[in-house]
Design a protein around this nucleic acid. Structure first.
Lengths: 219, 219
DNA sequence: CCTACCGATCGGTAGG
DNA sequence: CCTACCGATCGGTAGG
């Protein structure tokens, strides 16, 4: 039954093309921002003409929403797997950092800026909720554990609530990623000093948990 | 001598107009980013026509450079005054946070993104140096003091070098500023919890220095 | 500092 | 999935 196969093949091709568009758009949007990436750039990078995009997405904004939805949903699944692991708060935070540094190119700041300034208000709200539920909430739940265990300072003893800790945590990560890289740069960058993702994860988590001040136990 | 006065007046008016343009452009560029702000928007907000801008600046990029140059130079002067004060490392960091939260709307992430992606390579390099010298270096010098005094962990004992500390410090600040604000937002934001700049400054510096983990001295 | 205008590029549509 | 094309807007220029 060649017709049936053909039909399936076409349907699969169409789905594959859609995936190609989303992946390509993700790479471009995350690097340059929503406005700076034209629909023609995306189409060219996919080997399509620009109007072809409008077969899969009603407009540029819908494509952007699809990109963020897939990105955040995937990240959420990974974070929730880590959060449920039977590990200490410290270790789970390290695993989260390693995952986020390793896989996504998330410039969270750029993403939030685009959500707030380039999209329609309804979409803004929806993506903000997605961001909260997919990225902030899983991370906050680890800090929540730390607070319950008495490991972390509560807000009345110089600490912060779990959600604020999660924001702070994310902000420390995104700066690592957005660090400028010049060949002639004589100034230190973490990427050059602490080579592996694992070492960077260790470092970020240690600073957030224990701070920069030398403690009495240190030699 | 009315002619002399008129001449001076014209010169002063021209300078004043230039300043108006720079201040207006600063506000818009820092909020929406380089590409999202059109030269017509800037001109309108100044009560001018768009071509009038080109009497004061050769192109949009030069206006952006002027904005960043004035902004960073002003900030640098303030930071260096704080750095030279006869105060502890902790207190000077607190003063820096308070200054940066209070005066500039710096979304450092947006600024660095624009520098890296929207401008010509030569200008990129120049602004990157300005950023390093004007913002990173003064802050790093305080961390340098902390390292010399043995207050802070050095890189061999779980700490970081002074420049990395300065980047981390800035990244923790910029997230505070770029936090999304929705009226219906049920989730905690630092801005709502810790009202004054002073309290926020205290909090950020304490976390960066002492970490989130409860220490033995805490009750 | 204005009016008038330019070439380029944008997101999106028509029609097949 | 293509060609052809649209109105709008962009940064910048001419000429006064």
């Amino acid at each position: 039954m060649p017709r049936r196969q053909r039909k399936t093949g076409v349907r699969e091709d169409a789905e594959e093309t859609r995936n190609t568009i989303v992946r390509t758009a993700e790479r471009l949007f995350m690097e340059y921002g929503y406005r700076a990436v034209s629909t023609r750039q995306i189409a060219d990078a996919c080997g399509l003409t620009q109007p072809a995009l409008y077969h899969y997405f009603t407009d540029k904004q819908e494509l952007y929403v699809a990109v963020l939805h897939e990105n955040i949903t995937k990240t959420q699944a990974a974070l929730e797997r880590i959060v449920r692991r039977n590990e200490s708060v410290q270790e789970r935070l390290r695993l989260i950092v390693r995952y986020l540094l390793g896989t996504t190119q998330h410039d969270i700041g750029l993403m939030l800026h685009d959500i707030q300034h380039e999209l329609a208000p309804q979409v803004q709200e929806m993506l903000h909720r997605l961001f909260q539920a997919g990225l902030i909430a899983p991370i906050a739940s680890v800090f929540e554990d730390g607070l319950r265990q008495g490991l972390l300072r509560d807000p009345h003893h110089g600490g912060v609530d779990a959600t604020t800790a999660a924001y702070l945590f994310m902000s420390m990560l995104s700066r690592f990623l957005a660090r400028p890289q010049y060949a002639h740069d004589r100034l230190a960058t973490l990427a050059s000093h602490y080579t592996s993702d694992g070492e960077q994860a260790e470092l970020i988590v240690n600073i957030l948990l224990y701070g920069l001040v030398r403690s009495v136990e240190d030699t």
